[in-house]
């Protein structure tokens, strides 16, 4: 990498990191796993004057259930998700997603926090978090605040995280029994961003009625997107083939993909439809286990 010149600090505490962010203002950029930022610096699309490397700050890479939430420290790596027994046994949607993120080398470094904080609709975790109605914990020198995932993404590379703040945790409500979830994306080759990706979490009651539906879409909208009408169409319904088809149809209709080398708008809408149907089926299958 031959980036533009920059200064660099690797603080050992959050307090020091906040102070550095305060001091350098808009010149500063947080370096977590680096797998979004460093490629941009390499291509000189980004030339931050000051990097605050938060890899030395301890206590930010946990994955645990606590107080009704699955709590994921912002510095947990994709590889940590891959290797977590808790995730594998109870949250297969994360395993679905993490194995589709880039390649093992990237997953050894890339963090869940960074994947979300980058604010890129092409990243995979945002859709998963939307489907699971996550909350994002944002910290600063003034303290902590919690932002629902629906209020987190502002625009292209823009999120609720302010210049003096650091995303420190993601909280996901522990789903009740009868819940299943799944994620898949179509990619042109391993490591590619999604042509289209769909995350689904469904809860069904004992009589087979849908009591929760969360559907998040990857890379088919300027920001990570919830397929709200699809969710509404399923809530309170029996999970029939017709209901599922309708939810899929609505997701395809509501997304806003743009043409690129992966495919045109028509193709991507169709893929959102196919994947929504397939992921609902897969989530239901998992819910029944």
């Amino acid at each position: 990498m031959i980036p533009a010149p920059f200064d660099y600090a690797a603080p050992n505490t959050l307090a020091e990191a906040f102070a550095l962010l305060e001091q350098h203002g808009d010149d500063a950029k947080i370096l977590a796993g680096g797998h979004s930022l460093i490629p941009m610096m390499k291509l000189r699309f980004a030339s931050p004057a000051f990097l605050v490397d938060i890899n030395n700050i301890p206590g930010l890479s946990y994955i645990r259930e606590e107080d009704g939430y699955l709590r994921i420290g912002a510095m947990a790596r994709e590889a940590d998700l891959d290797h977590s027994e808790l995730i594998r046994s109870r949250y297969p949607i994360f395993t679905d997603a993490s194995k589709l993120i880039a390649d093992p080398q990237v997953r050894n470094m890339g963090t869940i926090g960074g994947n979300i904080a980058h604010g890129d609709a092409a990243n995979d975790h945002p859709a998963v978090m939307l489907a699971m109605r996550a909350e994002v914990v944002i910290s600063s020198a003034e303290g902590q605040r919690t932002v629902p995932i629906d209020e987190f993404f502002y625009g292209f590379y823009m999120t609720a995280v302010q210049q003096n703040e650091i995303l420190t945790e993601i909280r996901i409500p522990i789903p009740p029994a009868g819940t299943g979830n799944a994620y898949h994306k179509l990619e042109r080759k391993v490591g590619d961003y999604a042509t289209a990706g769909v995350a689904v979490q469904i809860t069904v009651d004992g009589k087979g009625f849908c009591t929760y539906a969360g559907i998040g879409l990857t890379n088919v909208n300027p920001t990570p997107m919830r397929a709200a009408r699809s969710e509404e169409a399923l809530l309170g319904q029996k999970m029939t083939e017709e209901a599922i088809a309708e939810a899929a149809r609505l997701a395809a209709e509501d997304c806003n993909p743009s043409d690129d080398l992966r495919g045109d708008e028509e193709y991507k809408r169709a893929m959102v439809g196919v994947l929504t149907r397939r992921m609902i089926h897969k989530a239901l299958e998992r819910a029944r286990r």
Binding site: R188, K189, L261
Partner: peptide, 14 residues
């Protein structure tokens, strides 16, 4: 597609 992001060189996976 002037980078490996979009110039798709297949890997062992493909």
């Amino acid at each position: 597609n002037g980078t490996f992001m979009d110039y798709l060189v297949p890997t062992a996976v493909e």
